[in-house]
């Protein structure tokens, strides 16, 4: 219940901050009346900018903000609301040009007759167009993720900064000291947010470093990175959560990557992340030397059994390295002495490359764990399930009681696997609120 109240509160605050400029500018005494189309265009510009500015809040990784929804949903919302705010910003000049074609001459950036307010607005608009094009088509344009992130931040700052300059230079609606103070405060809020995320928080992370203790080969091109806190109490987290990792790089560079924690939440001074070789960055994990300095930003995420204290049973449906949050949960349950039943349906390519295969077997003696392996390429004498995770397997292995709040099911693995499992669970009439997934496609 607390989560829903928090979620509703943040949503209403978001809406309030998005609408604040146009509501406050309507307070008497108002600026003199003008044509409807001109004021409609102005209102769309103000609202579009307010929504664009709110993206700094959404992507600032505030834990209190992501707690009710999950980080994946915050980024999903960020992508969608950003495109909608771009449409509002774009509509602002288009409406002006349509209803007053004389304003088209303001597009001549180099003309001495073009005022600086128009130049600032036009540059902000170009930054907005670039932001959307580079984000929506990043993969098609083959732009490297880290480079894109830096430019994304730069362009967003240019957009908000120059749009603010544009509004201040136009100054039409700021006819009272109250409205001027409001706009200055609004601007200072964005600057303060930028200072916090780009300078203050990285400084805090630098003062709470970790050192790599060891890198363990878990099989199946999967490696665990074990970290020890240096001079502080470690990371307090819930099993199933994740953190952003900066490896051998100061946090100012923002070259961090999100990974699930695989260690026990009962041991905050022994943190591990389990990572599979999938791309340029993950291929370097096995080469990291003990003693390397690491900074952790987190924990984040709601993909945790601790969010469902009422649950009587749990099930994890994992594919390959998607076992990571399940490992954290199983290790935590073992440390806590939690005997609630856990069913693990674990899909892998073959028997030889199953990450944590031996440790999972060992955990069966410490907790109430049932393991169901599903192998794509099983050995000849294999008696278990083969192929992919099907509705039939789920129907047989998951709890037959499909009442709400009995068995909480967590799904983690490759996107197509998660899509298929969600579809099967829905068809099997599992309560929609009882199965959970968290997707790391944040970019």
């Amino acid at each position: 219940m607390k989560r829903y109240i928090q979620g509703t509160f943040w949503l209403l605050l978001f809406l309030g901050l998005a609408l604040a400029p146009i509501i406050l500018l309507m307070i008497e005494p108002r600026a003199p009346s003008r044509e409807f189309f001109r004021e409609f265009s102005v209102a769309l510009g103000f609202s579009g900018l307010a929504l664009a500015g709110m993206q700094f809040v959404l992507t600032a990784r505030f834990r209190f903000l992501s707690a009710p929804y999950g980080t994946d949903i915050i980024y999903h919302f960020h992508r969608e609301i950003s495109i909608l705010s771009f449409l509002l910003i774009l509509a602002h000049p288009i409406i002006l040009f349509l209803f007053d074609p004389r304003t088209l001459k303001l597009l001549n950036f180099l003309s001495p007759d073009t005022p600086w307010r128009a130049r600032a607005g036009l540059t902000a608009l170009i930054a907005a167009i670039l932001l959307v094009v580079l984000s929506v088509w990043r993969k098609k344009l083959k732009i490297e993720y880290n480079g894109w992130r830096i430019w994304h931040g730069v362009l967003a700052t240019v957009l908000i900064g120059l749009a603010m300059v544009h509004i201040i230079l136009v100054g039409y609606h700021f006819n009272t000291p109250f409205k001027q103070i409001f706009w200055v405060s609004y601007t200072l809020f964005w600057i303060g947010l930028l200072v916090y995320t780009r300078i203050l928080r990285p400084f805090w992370l630098i003062r709470h470093p970790y050192l790599v203790e060891k890198v363990v080969d878990e099989g199946g091109r999967t490696y665990s990175l074990w970290l020890k806190p240096q001079g502080h109490g470690g990371l307090k987290f819930q099993p199933g959560q994740f953190a952003w990792i900066h490896i051998d790089q100061l946090p100012f560079y923002h070259r961090d990557h999100p990974f699930s924690i695989s260690s026990s939440a009962a041991q905050p001074t022994q943190i591990s992340f389990t990572i599979r070789e999938l791309g340029d960055f993950t291929r370097t994990i096995k080469e990291i030397k003990p003693g390397t300095k690491v900074y952790l930003e987190g924990p984040f995420g709601i993909f945790s059994p601790d969010h469902h204290p009422q649950a009587k049973k749990f099930a994890y449906i994992c594919g390959g390295v998607g076992i990571t949050p399940a490992m954290s949960t199983l290790r935590t349950f073992a440390d806590r002495g939690d005997k609630r039943p856990v069913t693990l349906i674990y899909a892998n390519r073959d028997w030889e490359n199953i990450p944590f295969r031996d440790e999972l077997e060992a955990l069966r003696s410490r907790i109430n764990l049932k393991i169901v392996h599903v192998l794509e390429q099983p050995p000849e004498d294999w008696k278990g399930y083969s192929g992919y995770i099907t509705a039939d397997i789920l129907n047989k292995e998951l709890d037959s009681d499909r009442q709400p709040n009995v068995q909480e099911v967590f799904i983690c693995g490759p996107g197509p696997m998660m899509d298929a499992v969600e579809k099967h669970l829905s068809a099997l009439k599992f309560p929609a609120g009882d199965y959970h997934s968290e997707r790391f496609d944040l970019a």
Partner: peptide, 30 residues
């Protein structure tokens, strides 16, 4: 499911912003 709710909320916010913008334009044009 969560993603669909998030999309729906983004669209609701977008519509509300347009409605308030129309009210703003009307208030300043009379």
């Amino acid at each position: 499911m969560r993603k669909r709710i998030s999309t729906a909320l983004a669209i609701v916010i977008f519509i509300l912003v347009i409605v308030f913008s129309l009210i703003f334009a009307w208030a300043f044009s009379i």
